[in-house]
Amino acid sequence: MPPLPGFSDNPLVTRDDVIHAAKSLLRPLTTYFSPCKARIRLPVSTGTHFDETAAQLEGFARPLWAIAPLLLGGDVDPPLYDAWIEGFAAGTDPHHPEYWGDIKDMDQRMVEAEMLAFALLATPRDKLWERLADSTQTNLVSWFMRMQRKEMPPINWLWFRVFVSLALIKVCGVPEAEIRAQLDDDMRALDSFYLTDGWSSDGIWRHPDDDEKEYEILRETGIAGRLPTGRSADFYSGSFAIQFSQLLYVRFAADIDPDRAERYRVQARSFSLGFSRYFGADGAVIPFGRSLTYRFACGAFWAALGFAEVWDLGGSLAEPGAAKGYLLRHLRWWAKHSEDIFYGDGTLNFGWQYP
C-alpha cells in the first residue's frame, strides 16, 4: 500500500507543514461525499454496532477535528472546506434523504454531535455558523436539543453532550437557563471519574468490594457481568477523551466556569508529567488500551494543551516548546512508518502500523 504524499514525505517541522499534512489527509475523503455533502461513505465494508446512517455521519463529522482548527487559523481553501459547510443543510433537515436521523437514547449520533459542536465553538462565526441558512441554523439547534435528557453511557460520552450544550449556549443563542441543569449534571458526573495525578477513569472506577459481590452473584445465578466493570484508564483517559476534553473545556468555558477550568489546568499539568513517559525520544508511543486504530490521535493531548494555552507544565516540560515537541515528534514517527496505513486512494485503513 503506497504512502500518502503530503503526509508520509512531510518533515512536520513548521506550522505550514502541519497544515499541509492535515489537508493531505482530508482531500481523499472528498471523493466519497454523498450528493448533498451530508455524509461520507468510504468504499470499505466493515461492521459496526450502529446503523449505516450514523456510520456515514461519522465519516462526515470526524474530519471536523481538523477542518475547524484550519479555519480558525485562517486557512483559505473553499473547494475543500465548503463541502463540509454545505453538508450541514441536508444533514439537519428531517425531510431530506440525507438527514442524519433523530438522536435517540444510547445513540452513536451523540458521539458525532461532539465534532459538530466543536466545529461551531472553534470556528469563527463568520466562517461557519453565519454561513448557514436560517433554516439550517434552526434545524441544527433542534437536532442538538434532542440530546438533552437522553440516556447515555456514564463514561466519556457525557463530554459529547457537554460540548453540544456549550455550542447551543455560546453559538446558537439558546438561553443558558434551558441547558444549565443538564450541563451541571454532566459535569458533576464527569468530575466523579477523577483518580489521581491528573488521570481519570472512563467511568466510575470499580471498587474492589464489587469483585466479591460479583463472585457471589455468579455463584448464586451462574451469570457474570451483572455489576459495572469500570476499570478503564487508557488513551481515553488522555488524548482520546477525558484530558483532551477537559482542555477543550478550558478553551471554551473558562469564562462561565473559571474555577473548574483552573482545576482542569492543574490536572493537565500533573497528567502531562506522567503521560510524557509513554512517548519515546523518536515520537513512538506505547500502544495500549482501546481504539488504537486512532493512531496519531494518541498525541492529541499535546495539541489540546496548545489549544487551551496551558503552557507552564513544570518539571521536564517547563519550556514552552515542550508540548509542541511531543506532538511533532509523534506525527513524524507516524509519517516515517506510514507505508502500510493508507489504502491506495489515500484514505486511512484500519489498524496500527499495518492494516
Rank of each mutant, 00 (worst) to 15 (best):
S24R: 00
Y81A: 07
F240L: 12
T92E: 09
P35N: 10
A133H: 15
I242M: 10
Y343W: 15
D210T: 15
R27I: 11
V250E: 00
D340K: 06
I67M: 06
P43C: 04
R39G: 07
F193C: 01
Q353L: 14
A89T: 15
H95A: 14
E220F: 10
I179S: 03
D16E: 15
L190F: 13
V310N: 05
W334I: 07
R219E: 12
P94H: 12
G299F: 06
A281G: 06
Y264Q: 06
G238W: 07
E319S: 13
I179G: 00
T48R: 13
R27N: 04
R180V: 11
S237T: 11
L42F: 14
L116I: 13
I204N: 10
G283S: 02
E98C: 07
L168V: 08
K104E: 15
S270E: 13
F88Q: 08
D185V: 06
T31M: 03
A304V: 11
T138V: 14
I204G: 03
T30P: 01
T31H: 10
G173R: 07
F193T: 01
L140N: 03
L26N: 03
R332M: 12
L328K: 05
A318I: 07
A261N: 04
R251S: 01
G306V: 06
E86F: 10
S272R: 00
G198F: 07
F275M: 08
R251T: 10
V250T: 04
G59E: 10
Q267P: 05
L120K: 04
D17V: 06
F235P: 01
L227Y: 13
P28C: 05
G101S: 04
P35R: 09
S291F: 12
R180D: 13
D186W: 01
A113P: 06
Y99D: 05
I286M: 13
S272K: 01
L348Q: 00
T123Q: 02
S245D: 12
D9T: 10
R329M: 09
L140M: 11
T229I: 08
A300M: 12
P320E: 11
L4T: 00
I256N: 01
Y32K: 01
D185E: 15
P175E: 15
